[in-house]
Write a protein that binds this DNA or RNA. Structure first.
Lengths: 342, 342
DNA sequence: CTGAAAGCGCTTACAG
DNA sequence: CTGAAAGCGCTTACAG
């Protein structure tokens, strides 16, 4: 009585084999698309699979084969669309290779990040793509390697160790930005960086200084703030009335750039006329504000694709040489940039 | 010669048991934090785990226990930050329960969505949270249920079947928006919807009509476009010069709203003064444009939390009653809304 | 090209 | 509270 049909056990390879009148090993070969099995046998097995409603059990297969056909991705911040696009790029390649992706977001917390690494090891992921949280310790990657975990860093790198990496070359876009400012007569240029410390933070600062030197300019200010719209707007409010303030600002990212745009605008300082503003990342919002926010662009989806390819290769050949891949960046001019006021 | 140390096999529960001088079953009880084992034995096993560097093998455990401690999430579009926040909410609950999350994005393609469902079944996920791609067939959820897969829909629902659902109640915010327009004297109001068909599309349109009727207004126009900034801007360009155009527009989402904002602004029609604009979703950008874009707000993270809780409950008790949960929405006024011009 | 046996690392009853 | 045996669903050698 009472249809207590607990979760019905799903058909196994043995069920398929019986139905098709072959051994389990043969059925397994068909599932794995091995060329070792004859066309007729293959057809019989495939028909049987459909017949019994067979679903491949990746977990069981992985246990014997010592790989899980999964990878893990750890991202610092899922609400930033930049990372969403990165993730989409990763997923496209990983899915194409027949693997599935575990995702976790660290919220820029190294402790949470460590927790996710443990969880993913327990799930036996075949490899890991990490964009390390700000403040991640130098031992993070060496520890992963000691465990024999294939790992690729994306966008940021920690510890300077030898590890596959896919990121962006900040220099091209930064140089384009500074060159344009020089051309427009700016010689009082400020830089606003974020108070989150990771390699991209440093790279952008270094690239800024190098570009400034190359164009014979000197930075009048380098300011560090929390990378939120509100903090940046507050900075703009302070600068709006200041004497000797820079006539142009380059920002670590568009969040800060848009915040400055907002803050200056609300204090009657018009971007592109009274002050020049340049962001970084070229997110969609840069095109929506008026005047548009000039920015430095790259292709986050492409970085994701490269990172995924690096990881698949590392899983395939653990002893391959370390590869560092960077995609170029370029300056995208918009109306927030203009000639210095006479 | 040559340290060919292939991937070292990691320690098993047997290694831990030997080290601690107990049987494998006892070690297993310690790992699973069973209260059946004595404090002294527990301590010895825990020490041994650290000693040998034990990592729990969730896959092997799951195979025997017939659950994987994983769930799958299928999202239509990862580059929309709204879904990023939803995902973060899901992850927080799922992680808290000790499970890991597979993620896939369908790109609004039902075919890709089916592929991911298969992949996730093969990986033996314990359940699925889906925001169905536009155009998903009515049989989608029934099929999952026939397979015995616990499933929760988020934000959108298809087929009208009995399935757990976490979404938003469009009506409150829509009514607030229309009420405010009526108050400001608008009686020529248009609605711009997206050409992607899913339940939220219909709900918003129905809510719009109901609110208009309630406030004694009549829609002069309902237009359907592709939900991109550019398409919306093009629509604004056509409307900018049109006689009898609505004096206020409500949009299916902020992408369309921001596109209209951009298009009108670039044609000298100032939002809030010459035309009133209201979006939907209250994404961060609404606060960055000038004048700010009024919108209807909800809490995507909260929807994620609810969806995750529904799924965990469904996995726990497969026969529980179906639950439909909606979080409220509310109108957020900004300067893009103003009195109708005399 | 196909089949019988062993084993991946765990958990589940079942005895004690 | 602890131990010995069987089995989850697959793949891997090894024979034929």
């Amino acid at each position: 009585m009472g249809e207590k049909s607990a979760r019905q056990t799903r058909p196994t390879l043995m069920d398929v084999a019986k139905k098709a009148g072959v051994s389990r090993a043969t059925a397994s070969l068909v599932v794995r698309k091995s060329p070792l099995v004859g066309a007729e046998t293959r057809a019989a097995v495939e028909a049987a699979m459909i017949d019994v409603g067979y679903v491949y059990n990746v977990g069981a297969a992985g246990m014997r084969a010592a790989r899980s056909r999964t990878i893990g991705v750890i991202i610092p911040n899922l609400s930033n669309p930049f990372f969403g696009v990165l993730l989409a790029g990763i997923d496209r390649i990983v899915d194409g290779a027949g693997l599935a992706t575990f995702i976790a977001h660290s919220g820029e917390s190294p402790a949470k990040q460590d927790g996710f690494v443990t969880r993913m090891r327990e799930h036996g992921v075949d490899g890991l793509i990490v964009c390390p949280a700000a403040g991640t310790g130098d031992d993070f990657v060496p520890r992963l390697k000691r465990w024999g975990m294939p790992v690729v860093e994306a966008l940021r790198t920690v510890g300077g160790g030898a590890v596959d990496y896919a990121g962006m070359d900040q220099r091209g876009g930064m140089d384009g930005a500074v060159a344009r400012l020089a051309e427009l007569g700016h010689d009082r240029v400020g830089f606003v960086t974020a108070n989150l410390y990771h390699s991209a933070h440093d790279e952008r600062l270094v690239a800024f200084r190098a570009a400034m030197a190359r164009h014979g300019l000197q930075a009048v200010t380098e300011i560090e703030i929390a990378p939120t719209h509100a903090e940046a707007a507050a900075l703009a409010a302070r600068m709006a009335g200041a004497a000797d303030a820079p006539t142009a600002w380059i920002c670590h990212n568009d969040v800060i750039g848009l915040g400055l745009h907002w803050g200056f605008s609300d204090h009657g300082v018009v971007p592109g006329r009274d002050v020049s503003l340049i962001g970084f990342d070229n997110v969609a919002e840069t095109d929506l504000v008026r005047p548009g926010l000039a920015s430095v662009a790259t292709e986050p989806g492409e970085i994701g694709v490269l990172a995924a390819r690096l990881l698949l290769r590392r899983i395939e050949t653990p002893d391959a040489d370390v590869e560092i891949l960077t995609v170029p960046t370029h300056f995208v001019e918009r109306a927030s940039v203009g000639a210095v006021r006479g």
